Simulated scan of single mutants.
Amino acid sequence: MPDLVEALDVPLGRVRRLIDEHYLIGSRRSGVFAVPSIFIVDGHPLSSLRGTVIVLQDAAFTDDEVIDWLLEADDTLGRSPIDALLAGHKSEVRRLARTLA
């Protein structure tokens, strides 16, 4: 969490709220809670991430599964979903995510 506080330049309480409200998503796979740095753009959570995370969680994905899905290449998109989100293609990504429900 201290790294997130520094990267986002906000207090710890705000970082926790961003996670609780699904603006960011992280994992404890390595033992320490971590958010992939690609989810943070110019010191802010990627704006299109939240809706996509919510769609996937509604489809019963765990946080680890959401992160894996976002980072893995997808043949339909021709790239990873996170790369498509970064390129501004959130509708395409969310449409694909809804098919997983």
Score class of each variant (00 low, 15 high):
Met1Lys: 13
Met1Arg: 10
Met1Ala: 08
Ala7Asp: 04
Ala7Ile: 00
Asp9Ile: 00
Val10Cys: 05
Val10Ile: 09
Val10Ala: 07
Val10Arg: 06
Pro11Ser: 14
Pro11Gln: 13
Gly13Pro: 06
Val15Thr: 06
Arg16Met: 12
Arg16Cys: 12
Arg16Asn: 15
Arg17Val: 13
Leu18Thr: 09
Leu18Lys: 05
Ile19Phe: 12
Asp20Asn: 15
Glu21Thr: 15
Glu21Cys: 15
Tyr23Asp: 15
Tyr23His: 15
Ile25Trp: 10
Ile25Pro: 15
Gly26Trp: 08
Gly26Phe: 08
Arg29Pro: 14
Ser30Lys: 11
Ser30Glu: 14
Gly31Val: 11
Val35Trp: 06
Pro36Gly: 01
Pro36Ser: 02
Pro36Leu: 04
Ser37Ala: 04
Ser37Thr: 03
Ser37His: 03
Ile38His: 02
Phe39Asp: 01
Val41Phe: 00
Val41Asn: 02
Asp42Trp: 00
Asp42Gln: 03
Gly43His: 00
Gly43Met: 01
Pro45Asn: 01
Leu46Tyr: 01
Ser48Val: 03
Arg50Gly: 12
Thr52Trp: 05
Ile54Lys: 09
Leu56Cys: 06
Leu56Glu: 05
Gln57His: 13
Asp58Ile: 07
Asp58Met: 09
Ala59Arg: 05
Ala59Tyr: 08
Phe61Val: 07
Phe61Tyr: 11
Asp63Cys: 12
Glu65His: 11
Asp68Lys: 15
Trp69Leu: 04
Leu71Cys: 05
Glu72Phe: 09
Asp74Val: 07
Asp74Pro: 06
Gly78Cys: 06
Gly78Met: 07
Arg79Thr: 02
Arg79Asp: 05
Arg79His: 03
Arg79Ala: 06
Ala84Met: 00
Leu85Met: 01
Leu85His: 01
Leu85Gln: 01
Gly88Asn: 02
Lys90Asp: 08
Lys90Val: 10
Ser91Asp: 11
Ser91Glu: 12
Leu96Val: 09
Leu96Trp: 04
Leu96Gly: 05
Ala97Met: 06
Arg98Ala: 15
Arg98Leu: 14
Thr99Gln: 14
Leu100Asn: 08
